[in-house]
Amino acid sequence: MEDVPGSAHLVLASGVVHLDEPGAVFEAMLAGWGRQQKSRLLADSTVAARLALVRRFAAFAQAHPWDWTAADIEDFTASLMSGEDRCGPSTIRGYHVTLRMFCDYLLDGRYGWIAQCERRFDRIPSQVCHDFNTAAHLVDYEGRPARRPLSYDEMQTLFACLDDRVEVIARSGRKGALAALRDAQMVKTAYAFGLRRRELCFLDVTDLRPNPKMPQWGTFGAIHVRYAKSSRGSTPRRRTVLAVPEFDWVIDGLRQWVLEARPLLGPGPRPELWLTERRVRVSLRLMDRRFAFLRAEAGLAPELALHCLRHSYVTHLIEFGYPERFVTEQVGHSYASTTAIYTSVSNDFKTRTLQAALRRVYGTTTESEKR
């Protein structure tokens, strides 16, 4: 038998009598599947989450994989859709995909699990996930409807709250003025460059780059993103995001943070752009907590997450008239269709676009334009 990563004979010792043979075989299956996924260069966090889901499903079904049935999947799905903590469609679909992949692994003859189960338990695993009991991916976007771009008024309210908070803390003489300034600049940078949360938190000072076309912006005319979203075990993708003139106000904020505020933390040789008072990188979890606090301070809807600023960035660039291809490159999407999902232009923009079309086609002005 060939030594394929995840094969039964590599993780299940022969000639060993187990006190709990079904439990030992199940754990060996999980260990083998973990090896197979890691050989695809998947992240440890991804592998751990998938293994945890398989364990969760086995505990729900109260059966081992060779005894699973399609009805177990249906009952599991029903449980996920009930109660106050019901899962969203995309989450459930992801669970189905994971369980389907695990069953495919067990049924692949190269790994030897069919023979092991038949010899030990006189039963073999089956594919319990099929087209009629799993969620289909029918639409491009399955996010929550409440997650949307912020309006211009909401952006102004948020930024005003950020600036006021820095001034109030600084005038009071209380500790926390630097942290407040950092939080404000992180939120503004996320919006002004359309960054994801991970891309924002993992920036280093050296990632701030000049734009040769705008020398007056110094080294703050572009951001080199090194930790963009990866896929299928690949390394994080990279891109350079250019500052746009409509958001040039972010330049002064970045310059103030890098040249004046950040040195007060005593960073020494540390490269991180965003540091805490303890001189460690601002974590993703901390950024989530800070944004939730700032959002509540500004009186915005609790459904608006940090990622909504990225949606706002895409929407506002489109409204400013930037070509769709430019916007797609700025945010690092592989396909323009993904960028289109992020776009939710305002009614005013639609009205202006229609008025321009009427002038172009008919050469006349509308009644609203005359008024």
Rank of each mutant, 00 (worst) to 15 (best):
Q127L: 15
Q127Y: 06
V128D: 10
V128H: 14
C129A: 07
C129L: 12
H130M: 07
H130Q: 11
H130P: 02
D131A: 14
D131P: 02
F132Y: 15
F132T: 15
F132C: 06
T134S: 12
A135T: 13
A135D: 11
A135L: 14
A135W: 13
A136P: 04
A136R: 15
A136T: 09
A136W: 03
H137R: 14
H137A: 07
L138M: 08
L138P: 03
L138Q: 08
L138F: 06
L138K: 12
Y141T: 05
Y141N: 13
Y141P: 00
E142G: 02
E142D: 06
E142M: 04
E142A: 03
G143D: 02
G143P: 04
G143N: 00
R144A: 14
P145V: 01
A146V: 09
A146N: 08
A146Y: 03
R147N: 14
R147H: 13
R148L: 04
R148I: 02
R148D: 02
P149K: 10
L150R: 04
L150F: 00
S151E: 10
S151Y: 10
S151F: 05
S151T: 15
S151H: 10
Y152C: 06
D153E: 15
Q156E: 14
Q156I: 05
T157D: 11
T157F: 01
L158T: 01
F159S: 12
F159P: 00
F159L: 11
A160L: 06
A160R: 09
C161A: 12
C161H: 04
L162P: 00
D163R: 13
D163Y: 07
D164T: 10
D164P: 01
D164Y: 00
R165C: 02
R165K: 07
R165G: 04
E167L: 06
V168A: 12
V168W: 01
V168S: 08
V168T: 11
I169T: 09
I169N: 00
I169V: 15
A170V: 12
A170F: 04
R171T: 13
R171D: 15
R171I: 09
R171E: 15
R171N: 12
S172K: 13
S172F: 12
S172N: 14
S172V: 03
G173R: 04
R174E: 01
K175F: 13
K175C: 11
K175N: 13
K175E: 15
K175L: 12
K175V: 03
G176P: 05
G176C: 03
G176H: 00
A177C: 01
A177D: 10
A177T: 06
A177S: 09
A177W: 08
L178K: 05
L178M: 11
L178G: 02
A179K: 06
A179L: 11
A180C: 08
A180R: 05
A180D: 04
A180I: 03
A180Q: 08
A180N: 02
L181Y: 15
L181S: 14
R182I: 07
R182S: 01
D183A: 07
D183Y: 02
D183Q: 03
A184L: 07
Q185N: 10
Q185Y: 10
Q185K: 05
Q185M: 13
M186S: 09
M186Q: 11
M186R: 07
M186V: 10
M186F: 14
M186A: 11
V187E: 05
V187R: 07
K188V: 09
K188W: 01
T189V: 14
T189D: 12
A190M: 03
A190T: 10
A190Q: 01
